[in-house]
């Protein structure tokens, strides 16, 4: 029975403290009943190798314990589509353009490379890493807090079909959409400058000027 005890101990580790003993007592009783029934059929004690399939069928300790816990998610299925749009916008409108500019400057600006020799070139990307980490972390935390609050259920239930946006016509570029994209781009640039990317831009301009002079 040592194998069963080890299994139960592993399950117990993942269980909520106040229910640990109760759940383990019940699961233990079930497993021991199964083993005793098989022992009665075979007329002998089961070897560990014969107990193993019973435990494997029961499931891995973490999986078994997980079934006793309430279902939780950091960001639930109702909010996840909005979260996904925000994260993708952050990457494509903010982090990706910044990275592209940095790559351009690192390749085409000798001055920038001279200012950041060797490993310092990659260290100059620190503000990008920081901005990326903090912005993704902030968004995730904000959505997780929204998920926890009751605001979600109220907001999701109070919607009006007439307030939905008009059906999108692919042949027509809407003025509102263009203004929105422009505003978003300007806002991204403003945030980008605010977070210290101005140095990279300065070097990019410098690089372009140098190239123009050479020609």
């Amino acid at each position: 029975m040592e194998l069963v005890d080890r299994y139960l101990q592993a399950v117990k580790f993942w269980l909520p403290r106040e229910q640990k003993d109760d759940i383990i007592a019940e699961l233990s009783e079930d497993l021991r009943s199964q083993i005793e029934e098989k022992e009665a059929e075979r007329g002998r004690k089961l070897a560990d190798a014969e107990v193993e399939p019973i435990l494997k069928r029961c499931g891995s300790p973490m999986k078994v314990a997980g079934r006793y816990l309430p279902q939780r998610s950091l960001i639930g299925p109702a909010l996840f589509p909005i979260y996904s749009v925000v994260i993708r916008s952050l990457i494509f409108y903010f982090l990706f353009p910044w990275l592209l500019v940095w790559i351009g400057v690192a390749i085409f600006s000798p001055d920038f490379r001279a200012d950041h020799p060797g490993a310092a070139l990659f260290l100059s990307l620190d503000p990008w890493w920081l901005a990326g980490t903090y912005s993704l972390l902030f968004c995730t935390l904000a959505f997780a807090m929204l998920e926890r609050s009751q605001m979600r259920s109220q907001a999701m239930n109070q919607w009006n079909p007439s307030a939905l946006p008009v059906a999108h016509d692919r042949n027509n570029i809407s003025r509102g959409g263009t203004i929105f994209e422009l505003t978003l781009s300007v806002a991204s640039l403003a945030l980008w400058f605010e977070l210290g990317a101005f140095r990279s831009v300065f070097h990019l301009l410098d690089c372009i000027t140098t190239l123009a002079r050479r020609e």
Binding site: I23, E26, L27, D30, G59, K63, V64, R67, Y68
Partner: peptide, 11 residues
Amino acid sequence: IDEGTLYPLLR
């Protein structure tokens, strides 16, 4: 029904 499904359901 396996034990990992039954006991949480009973609870």
